[in-house]
Amino acid sequence: MTLTLEEEEVIEILEEGRMKDIEECSQSLIGKFLTCKPFNKKVAQNTLRRAWGLTEELQIVEVGSNLFQFKFKSEFELERVFKGGPWTFDNQALMLRRWEPRMTATNVMFETIAMWIQIWDAPFDMKSPIVAAEIGKRLGEVVEVEKRRSQDT
């Protein structure tokens, strides 16, 4: 069944009655696990709550196929989790992005994901943050380079 142009009606919804819902959404992240294989969603949710240190303060709502809304009680906790990644469960990366107005399960887009990169067996003269940053730039945006730890012998 399809409506004709004459039958279509625009229904205006005012924000004033929805302020609590808008505030809840503004303190939320939308997340998707980078996997096609099935996984135990309850275990994933409980694992993330513990990893983030938010066993009671975090509401997790499944909003689509493998798509979750993480509702935080504070902006501080949201930022801590968002910037503290990358996060994984069962070796599957969790892509996160901030909620935006008009976002739906069908139009949410994940364009980037932060990843930790390790370089093994590099020559001794190339084990430096400068070399690591140069290699990282070839892969994408470099967020941070871990400083080399001195090893006592």
Score class of each variant (00 low, 15 high):
Leu3Asp: 02
Leu3Met: 06
Glu7Cys: 01
Glu9Lys: 13
Glu9Gly: 02
Val10Pro: 01
Val10His: 10
Ile13Gly: 01
Leu14Tyr: 10
Glu15Ser: 11
Glu16Leu: 08
Glu16Asp: 14
Glu16Pro: 07
Lys20Met: 13
Lys20Thr: 14
Lys20Gly: 08
Glu23Ser: 12
Glu24Asp: 14
Ser28Tyr: 03
Ile30His: 02
Gly31His: 04
Lys32Arg: 15
Phe33Ser: 03
Leu34Glu: 14
Cys36Pro: 00
Cys36Asp: 11
Lys37Gly: 08
Pro38Ser: 14
Phe39Gln: 07
Asn40Met: 10
Val43Asn: 09
Asn46Gln: 15
Leu48Asn: 02
Leu48Trp: 12
Arg49Pro: 04
Arg49Ala: 03
Arg50Gly: 00
Arg50Cys: 02
Ala51Phe: 06
Trp52Ile: 00
Leu54Met: 13
Leu54Asp: 06
Leu54Gln: 07
Thr55Trp: 07
Glu56Gln: 12
Leu58Pro: 07
Gln59His: 09
Ile60Asn: 03
Ile60Lys: 02
Glu62Ala: 07
Ser65Val: 06
Ser65Phe: 07
Ser65Tyr: 08
Asn66Met: 00
Asn66Lys: 00
Asn66Cys: 00
Phe68Ser: 05
Gln69His: 05
Gln69Gly: 10
Phe70Thr: 03
Lys73Trp: 04
Glu75Tyr: 10
Glu75Asn: 09
Phe76Val: 13
Glu77Lys: 07
Leu78Asp: 06
Leu78Phe: 03
Glu79Met: 11
Arg80Gly: 09
Gly84Pro: 08
Gly85Ala: 08
Pro86His: 01
Pro86Cys: 02
Thr88Pro: 02
Phe89His: 13
Phe89Ser: 09
Asp90Ile: 04
Asn91Asp: 12
Leu94Glu: 02
Leu94Ser: 03
Arg97Lys: 08
Arg98Cys: 05
Pro101Met: 08
Arg102Asp: 15
Arg102Tyr: 15
Arg102Ser: 15
Met103Ser: 05
Thr104Pro: 09
Thr104Ile: 04
Ala105His: 07
Ala105Met: 03
Ala105Gly: 14
Asn107Tyr: 12
Val108Trp: 00
Val108Ala: 02
Val108Gly: 00
Ile113Arg: 05
Ile113Ala: 10
Ile113Val: 12
Met115Pro: 00
Met115Leu: 14
Trp116His: 08
Trp116Leu: 05
Trp116Asn: 09
Trp116Tyr: 10
Gln118Cys: 10
Ile119Val: 15
Asp121Cys: 07
Pro123His: 08
Phe124Gln: 10
Met126His: 09
Lys127Pro: 03
Ser128Gln: 09
Pro129Phe: 12
Val131Phe: 06
Ile135His: 11
Lys137Ala: 15
Arg138Asn: 14
Glu141Arg: 13
Val142Asp: 09
Val142Gln: 05
Val145Met: 10
Val145Lys: 06
Glu146Phe: 13
Glu146Trp: 05
Lys147Gln: 14
Lys147Gly: 12
Thr153Gln: 11
